[in-house]
Amino acid sequence: MLTLGGRRVLDAISTTFTPGRVTAVLGPNGAGKSTLLSCLAGLRTPDEGRVLVDGQPRSALSMRDLARQIGLLPQGADVHWDVDVATLVALGRYPHRARWGETKADGAAVARAMAATDVTQFATRPMTALSGGERARVLLARVLAGEPQWLLADEPLANLDPAHQLGTLECLREVTRSGAGVILVLHDLNHAIRVADEVLLLCDGRIIAQGTPEDVLTPQRIAETYGVSSHIGTTPDGVRFIVTSQMAR
């Protein structure tokens, strides 16, 4: 349980995330999605209850050990100094830092992360010279450079055009192939059914449902949670989609 400003933001949440899978955390605005992610990443401590990482209480881990295991891509991540792309991605190695400078392993991890997000060609460009989409990919590369066992991303597709949204989703799926777990806060239900192995539906700080996208995202549950009616269909090439509309009054 977590209370902020007198309001219970998370309440009786009990769930398990599986490594090697993409879990989409969904819910209306104010449902507690970002707060849940903050708790998992160690930025907030629940008033009651605890977070276990691989069976170990999160509080038993040092901040550095936790950061090695969990990489967080916060919502609308700012970059306060205009550094170049390679420098920014290398910041992802901070939890692994050796006492004296960058190691070969750091350099290799940074190169892999930049290649995975297709930003290698921007390496020497300053961040202010990038478009919104390029910037988002660089910020994702920063998290990937840390090679975390868990990647947490809060609305990673915001401000991206459709092509970059799909590219980013593919990149996040790729992360799970190494056995890492990915937990995404998403707003678009179509992105969730496209990328997620599992969906966690939140409303008013409580879990409404958890399971496969097919099981969780039913028209009835979407109506109860979001207050909209929906139609679920499949394209000729087998991609499922959800069309929402205002409920008839």
């Binding site: 930025l43 916060p74 939890p95």
Partner: peptide, 12 residues
């Protein structure tokens, strides 16, 4: 440089 939240999540 990445802001307080990102820095804390990196172990700062």
């Amino acid at each position: 440089t990445l802001g307080e939240s990102a820095a804390r999540s990196m172990g700062v």
